[in-house]
Amino acid sequence: MNENGDRMSIIVQTIASILFPLALIFSFYVIMHGHLTPGGGFQGGAIGASAVALLIVAFGAKYVEGKMEEENLSIFESLGGLVFVIVSILGFFLAATFLTNFLVGEPLFGIIPAWGEAPLNSGGVLPILNLAVGMKVIGGLASVVLILAIASKEGEK
């Protein structure tokens, strides 16, 4: 450890601060295109949590905890689960059963794509569920890594 305490060198910090927004954008791309390309909520969430892990490695757990508190991450995760359950129950009330895809066939969200086309507003409720699961996985895995890093830092002293 150098005089900065938990931080790594300035090269690693610069590269991490360049790579972090790119990784978050890629994670959001994988989540939002889950119904068109390979990937989905869990995969994109794992990529976003890896971006947060990179930030923890470069800047130290204390700094990241000051920027994004673990309570906010926990609230983010619970919000994702709530959206999932609410959309599922809406399927019960607006259509046949629990988890029915009630938006498919609608003009705004439920376009059925032709061969070789990939419109973003297709798939009915699948993008919403992808977004919910992605929020859940990003919040959950990032908060686990953050909590473990802080706990191991406190255990060192």
């Binding site: 390979p38 995969q43 794992a46 990529i47 949590a49 890896s50 686990v144 890594v145 473990l148």
Partner: peptide
């Protein structure tokens, strides 16, 4: 199976190693 490949690369190679 590209879906499983992305999940394995993200979880297995990065997050498990970090933890």
């Amino acid at each position: 199976a590209p879906d499983v490949a992305i999940a394995e690369a993200g979880v297995g190679a990065c997050l498990t190693t970090a933890i």
